[in-house]
Amino acid sequence: MDPLLDFTGKVAVITGAAQGFGQLLAQELAKRGAKLVISDINKTGVLKVADDIAATGASVIAMACDVSKNDDCKAMVATAIENFGRVDIGVNNAGVAHEFMPLHEIDESIMDSQFAINVKGVQFGMRHQIQQMLQQGEGAILNVSSMAGISGAARGSAYAMAKHAVIGLTKTGAVEYGRNNIRINAICPFFTLTPMVTNFADQEQQKRMSKGAPMNRLGEPKEIVAMMLMMLSPANTYMTGQCIAIDGGVSAQ
């Protein structure tokens, strides 16, 4: 196996792994030798993903996790340590969107939900992942932000608010823990054909959304996960504090 994509023996924890990026990343890491602890608020879904991965012979544990609860995030890391002895990779992927609406119609309940899951959920994950990585003397964390985290997002202001906060957490963590050999980066996808998009946008809406990209289409999950693998690669040892846009050219405009 190419050393760039060899994760043999690495222990990864991934939130939001019942579908979308989390599910596909878990499958790809397992193919490359990683041991996994995967979680989702959808326990039935994440157990099914784990069963499929385990059938390939990979080591995987699935558990329910509400990332808005600190104790759930702590338990996930503790499970990895108890079963595999360490945490090499933390992927804070779980997140939620909200219905498209203008900023002046966003109420407090929407902002509270966005902050609880998309911001606190990332910080809780980082908190416990970093504590273990400090003991190990190394580790890599990847947070899932969005193009809405590095630009404006018309009719998605609360989501943009939260995803901008993920960028702040990522850059600050990279500065604080770089000397400890802990790399912390974020990925910022444009609209991608995961359930988060397809559940909110019908075919006509997706066509309109795709016109915002010079490549004139939405992203495919496998395209985003390919970059996630590169960012997490054990050979990628000098990259930290970066927020990488995978956007079909949107940010070049």
Rank of each mutant, 00 (worst) to 15 (best):
V122D: 00
V67M: 05
F190Y: 01
R155P: 07
M239K: 00
L29K: 01
Q136G: 04
Q114F: 03
N42L: 14
Q205K: 07
F115T: 13
V225S: 10
K211H: 10
L134G: 10
A26S: 11
D66T: 07
I81M: 10
K171A: 05
G152P: 14
S146M: 09
G57L: 15
V37M: 02
A58E: 05
L103M: 07
P214Q: 14
E28P: 13
R179E: 12
K35M: 07
C243A: 05
P3W: 14
T79W: 00
I117S: 09
K35I: 12
I14M: 05
V87D: 01
I117Y: 06
M239Q: 05
V60I: 14
N180H: 08
R183H: 10
L5Q: 04
M239C: 11
A140I: 02
F200S: 15
L29Q: 06
C188N: 12
A26W: 02
A50G: 04
I130M: 05
A75N: 09
Q135W: 12
M227L: 13
I81L: 15
D72H: 15
D52Y: 00
L232V: 05
M230C: 15
V87E: 07
A64H: 13
K69Q: 11
S157F: 07
A252Y: 10
Y159L: 08
L36V: 07
C188K: 02
I41A: 08
P189W: 03
D40L: 04
G45Q: 05
R179A: 12
I38S: 02
G33P: 08
V250M: 05
A78L: 04
C188F: 06
N118R: 03
Q205R: 04
G45P: 04
G125E: 01
N92L: 10
Q206W: 10
A226R: 00
F124N: 12
G9Y: 02
I167Y: 00
Q131V: 13
L232S: 00
K48W: 03
Y238P: 12
T237Q: 11
K69C: 13
V49P: 06
I167L: 13
I106S: 07
A154N: 07
H98L: 03
D2Q: 12
I41V: 11
I53E: 03
A153L: 06
G16A: 12
L193G: 15
V91E: 01
